[in-house]
């Protein structure tokens, strides 16, 4: 059932809204569902308007649920477009204000519009037992499907991530600025929230989307929200078992990769060149600093000094 969950009037003949598709167990209305205390999961996407992988995931999941209503044991809320203005205008931030929605949570009622939107989203989704926040990197970088989490929530989140058939789980240290994200706010308030990053901005990668939908179904089966068998999907690589290497541009120019995304690389392998379209010269050759997996690769070619080109994950035993 499609519901408007946040409604703010816009200046000229339009409302800002966040919509959700709510799936309930067959033959139960919402009052009965609440009374029986069934579990609730919220699947959100479109916090950044230039990230579209989650759009396709939401479609695929809703399509499956529409055709398998008898398998639903809990409340499944799907929010494809939290930043609805951004999604419809290829705008990462909230248009008009140029504010990154995922840096202003939990938001405030008495603050400017983006902050009110953030507050409204948290109020709407609070009470969920679980949440999945689907991102697609940005327009610059292509990412392997991965779950990211702060170390402080690892104990409660890692067992869930392992049910998702995801390639990689990146556990990072607490970073103060990330406390303003949707996921941190929800985790702090008791909703176990996983952040998925995969693919690249402004595009969809169907094979990643298909894979994530299977992972989400498996997770919901594990949580008792779907009445389907839990299966053994592939185990993720955990970042704590190795080291992430960052490759940043040392020069400005045009980055042309010479290695494909998700390749296994060896220390000293060439990753790409930064070239000058004007001089016709190679400004910098980029090499792998370790043996590992190229799990992030730059998609957008123009780079400045400092632009991230790639990330490589190396297991400690291979890191020589």
């Amino acid at each position: 059932m499609i519901e408007k969950s946040l409604n703010i009037e816009l200046p000229v003949s339009e409302d800002f809204r966040v919509q959700k598709n709510r799936f309930l167990p067959v033959n139960l209305d919402i009052d009965e569902v609440i009374e029986e205390k069934v579990k609730r999961i919220s699947i959100v996407s479109g916090t950044h308007g230039d990230e579209l992988e989650g759009q396709y995931v939401c479609y695929l999941l809703s399509d499956w649920l529409n055709n398998n209503k008898d398998k639903i044991n809990g409340i499944i809320d799907i929010y494809p477009a939290l930043n609805s203005l951004g999604i419809d205008s290829i705008t990462r931030s909230i248009p008009f204000y140029n504010v990154d929605l995922n840096r202003i949570f939990p938001g405030k009622k008495n603050d400017f519009l983006p902050s009110q939107i953030a507050e409204g989203i948290i109020e709407e989704i609070s009470g969920s037992d679980f949440a999945i926040d689907i991102h697609s990197s940005n327009i610059f970088l292509r990412e392997l499907p991965q779950v990211r989490m702060s170390a402080e929530f690892k104990d409660s989140l890692l067992p869930l991530a392992k049910k998702m058939g995801i390639d990689f789980v990146w556990i990072h240290d607490a970073i103060t600025v990330l406390e303003a994200t949707f996921a941190h706010t929800m985790n702090s308030r008791g909703t176990k929230t996983l952040v998925v990053e995969m693919g690249v901005g402004m595009r969809i990668t169907p094979e990643y989307c298909f894979s994530l939908v299977e992972g989400l179904k498996n997770l919901m089966a594990y949580l008792g929200i779907l009445n389907i068998p839990v299966v053994n999907l592939k185990e993720p690589v955990i970042s704590e078992n190795g080291e992430v290497f960052y490759l940043n541009a040392g020069n400005s120019g045009l980055f042309v990769p010479t290695t494909a995304h998700y390749e296994i690389v060896k220390h000293g392998d060439k990753i790409g060149n930064i070239v000058s379209p004007l001089s016709g010269k190679i400004e910098e050759e980029v090499f792998s600093p370790a043996n590992g997996v190229l799990f992030t690769l730059r998609e957008y070619p123009i780079v400045y000094e400092g632009s991230l080109l790639a990330r490589i994950f190396a297991f400690y035993e291979d890191h020589k």
Partner: peptide, 26 residues
Amino acid sequence: KRFWPLDNTDINVMFPGYDKGETTQR
């Protein structure tokens, strides 16, 4: 533009900065 034109990041949230990081961190 308001922020760094290529990636729309805000220099004034990047302090103390990082000499091996992204452009606005540098």
